[in-house]
């Protein structure tokens, strides 16, 4: 392991809902320019862990350090600090255009208040113009340049997923959290997403990605952590994790800890097996 301090360090993160411990003492670090995968069976607590990182949940125990500082448990301040995320089930602003969605993503990087909006001063206009330019550039980056004025809801499924990434990038994050970015995609779209995540890293943004698609994870990630029943089972290079007996077992066995079977799980079993 290198000696540079990690960008994100979660230590002993525990999240309890009443009697249920969804996440139990998870340690995880993401370094600059790294793509880290987070895998685990359904109900393992991956999304809950994400929510702890982004301030949607306040962890019952443990701490999350970002760039050496404790992240406040407020989503707005987490975003401002430089952590952006996408959602497992797409959560775009459906009745706003693609461009507007991305501009909203720039919320924490812009400052105009009500009075400057009413006054329409030169600074306000410059900020609006810059937001628009940045948003267009990001739409081009994810390949949606031609669909800027379409409403988010009328975009295709794959385009909606990419728009979510563009919107997250608009907040100029240093760390991007992707929650199942290829869920429901066909192999070609998955390959495109893989390329997109690589080019996100090329922009200097570290990525932490939850995914069920093993081929995607193994191709893309520098490191993979496995979460099972709220605890971290193992962590390591993709090859090591893939070879780990316990990981195979976690995915194949224990049918009783599943929240709900997903149509994709048989595939995953084949791949891990």
């Amino acid at each position: 392991m290198s000696t540079t301090p990690p960008l994100l360090r979660a230590s002993g993160v525990t999240m309890r809902f009443g009697g249920l411990t969804a996440v139990d003492g998870v340690d995880l670090a993401v370094r600059e320019n790294e793509i880290v995968g987070l895998i685990g069976p359904n109900g393992a607590g991956k999304t809950t862990f994400f929510n702890c990182l982004t301030g949607l949940y306040v962890p019952t125990e443990g701490a999350v350090l970002f760039a050496g500082e404790t992240l406040p448990p407020k989503p707005a301040r987490v975003t401002r600090a430089g952590v952006a995320r996408t959602f497992q089930n797409i959560r775009l602003f459906a009745n706003m255009s693609a461009l507007e969605n991305v501009i909203v993503g720039r919320h924490t990087r812009t400052r105009a208040g009500l009075l400057s909006a009413l006054a329409h001063g030169p600074r306000y206009r410059r900020e609006e113009r810059e937001s628009r330019e940045r948003a267009r550039e990001l739409l081009d980056f994810v390949g949606l340049g031609g669909q800027a004025d379409l409403l988010a809801r009328s975009l295709s499924y794959g385009a909606q997923r990419r728009l979510e990434i563009a919107r997250a990038l608009a907040s100029e994050p240093r760390l991007l959290l992707l929650d199942e970015p290829t869920a429901g995609m066909n192999p070609q779209e998955t390959a495109e997403t893989e390329e997109l995540v690589r080019s996100v890293r090329a922009r200097g943004v570290a990525v932490l990605v939850i995914e069920h698609d093993m081929r995607f994870i193994m191709n893309l990630c520098d490191r993979v952590a496995v979460l099972v029943q709220g605890t971290k089972l193992t962590e390591g290079a993709p090859g090591e994790v893939q070879a780990d007996e316990r990981v195979v077992e976690a995915y194949l066995g224990a049918p009783d800890d599943e929240e709900e079977p997903t149509p994709r799980s048989p595939q995953n079993r084949e791949r891990t097996a």
Binding site: T54, L56, N95, S171
Partner: peptide, 20 residues
């Protein structure tokens, strides 16, 4: 910016919160 934040809150409060 304010109006877009309002509409974003109307459309999806959780996502809007995640946008800061």
């Amino acid at each position: 910016r304010i109006g877009r934040a309002w509409i974003a809150l109307r459309e999806d409060e959780k996502a809007a919160t995640a946008m800061g």
